[in-house]
Design a protein around this nucleic acid. Structure first.
Lengths: 140, 140
DNA sequence: CCCTCGAATTAGACAGAGTCCAAACGCTGG
DNA sequence: CCAGCGTTTGGACTCTGTCTAATTCGAGGG
C-alpha cells in the first residue's frame, strides 16, 4: 500500500497541474491509465478501476475520461470503429495499428516529417494531425 | 429514368469489375454512394437508398458496405468515434476533418510526403496509412 | 466541530450504431 | 418446372456511450 501511495500522490499533483480537482475516483482512473503504458478503452479502464469489487460507476469513468481529454491529460485515439482508446503518452506521436490484433504502438513524431501539406481551408486552424499506419502480419 | 439507367448500368459493370455480383440492392447502394462525391455514413446511405418507401433493409446495407470494403470498392474512414464514413474516392488521399461540423474533405496524397517513417515491427507489412488533419474555425 | 452548498458521483434508463440469426426470397442452370 | 444457393430481410440483440435526477462528498466558514 505504501509504495503506490507515493504514485497516487504524484498523480494528484499531476491532476492539479492540469486544473483538475483530484478526487478519489479521478486518481484511481488516472492510476489505471498511467500505471501501465498501454492504450486502454473505456471498458478496460472501468474493469481495471473496479478490480475486485465495483467501486466506481460507469458514468464516472466516462465523465472523467471526457474531462481528462478536455484538460489534455490524455488523448483519444480513434482507429477502431467500435471504441475509443485513451493514450497516456503526452509527447507528440503517431501510431501503428495492428488490424488483426487491435494492438496500438507509438511512433515518435520526431521520426516523421509530413511535407507539402496543402493550405487549410479559409478561416480554419489546425487542431492536430493523426497519422495511423495500419499494419498486419506479412503472411496473411 | 433513362439518363440514370445508363449510370446504373455503369455501376453494374463497376461491381462486376470488383468481383461483386450486381444485385438490385447493391446497385442502389453503390448509386447512393457514388452519385454524389461526399462521405456518407451507413445511416445516411440507408436513408438515401430508401428515398420514399422502405425498399432495402438495414442488414443488407451493412452487409453490402462490408462487402464493398472487402472488395476495395470503397474505403472506410474512421474519424468519428460514433460512426464510420464511406469514401467513394478510389485515389490515394487523406482527409481534413472539421471537428465542429463533422465535414470531411479530401487531400490528394500526391501533395503529401511522409518521410523518416520508422521500420515496421518485425514480420509486419503495411496495410495503409491514414492521415487525418483535424481542423476547426480559427476563432473559437 | 458542525453546517452548508456546490461539485462530484451514482444507478439505471436510454440512445444509436452495428451484428446476428433463422426464415424467406429469387436467380440460374439443368 | 424444379433444385439449390446466394442474397435479402425483420427483428431481436449487443455494445459503447450519454443522460438524468437523486444522493453523497468534502472544503471552507462560522
Amino acid at each position: 500500500m505504501f509504495q503506490n501511495k507515493y504514485k497516487r500522490d504524484g498523480l494528484a499533483d499531476a491532476l492539479r497541474g492540469h486544473g483538475i480537482n483530484p478526487t478519489h475516483q479521478r486518481i484511481e482512473i488516472a492510476h489505471a491509465i498511467f500505471s501501465h503504458g498501454e492504450h486502454l478503452s473505456a471498458d478496460q479502464i472501468l474493469a481495471r478501476v473496479n478490480g475486485r469489487a465495483s467501486e466506481t460507476s460507469k458514468a464516472t469513468v466516462y465523465n472523467t475520461l471526457r474531462l481528462f481529454v478536455e484538460k489534455k491529460l490524455v488523448r483519444e485515439v480513434i482507429v477502431d470503429p467500435s471504441k475509443v482508446f485513451y493514450d497516456p503518452n503526452p509527447d507528440p506521436h503517431h501510431h501503428f495499428y495492428n488490424i488483426d490484433t487491435g494492438e496500438l504502438t507509438d511512433i515518435d513524431a520526431r521520426n516523421i516529417r509530413v511535407t507539402r501539406l496543402p493550405p487549410l481551408p479559409r478561416g480554419m486552424r489546425k487542431a492536430g494531425i493523426d497519422i495511423i499506419v495500419r499494419i498486419r502480419s506479412a503472411r496473411a
